[in-house]
Amino acid sequence: MHLDHSPHGPSAVSADARRADGARRALRVGLGGPVGSGKTATVAALCRALRDEFSLAVVTNDIYTREDAEFLLREAVLPPERITAVETGACPHTAIRDDISANLEAVEDLEDEVGPLDLVLVESGGDNLTATFSKGLVDAQIFVIDVAGGDDIPRKGGPGVTTADLLVVNKTDLAPYVGSDLARMAADAKAQRAELPVVFQSLRSEDGVREVAVWVREQLAAWTA
């Protein structure tokens, strides 16, 4: 555990950048957003894009099943020992924000058991627009919405849309079918987020996750700098 080697007591039990052996811990990136927006699909695509360059692991937070973990296992995006599911007691935002203990434990167990890791992706259970990750759990967070949930979501804002380090607007391939106005979504997102980045993507297209993967690489470069 981190504390035993900390000269100043346990001020940073969860957010300590170093592990007990002095090594830098993995960067932790959270993915949140409404149900079905494409969080698991983005995690899977990121794993495929980054797994040859970095040592990766994933923590999923399903609401009442193990579907996300099982999807990732079935798709074989990572070896099974690198994927852990956390149970959230019907309250996914509590497990990523108000009481992060089970998620921290999952992250640390992964680092102990398959480490050293460069990056841990933590997927939240699908939730509402106010669900954000605690800074005690993740170093950066991605909020994933989709064009099919209504093109007024960026305008509605809320902590996820407004403050996430990266906003992903997913399923742009569906925009013509659901009548979503991408230009309007982009303008509303800009108004809510000022300089914070926004990526529009379709995971149905070749290398659809490329821009998000570039962003994650930048985070990793900054983390290890």
Binding site: T88, G89, C91, T94, A95, D98, I100
Partner: peptide, 11 residues
């Protein structure tokens, strides 16, 4: 009940 020690996920 909000003491963050993991209890919320248990019945």
């Amino acid at each position: 009940g909000r003491f963050p020690a993991g209890g919320h996920a248990h019945s």
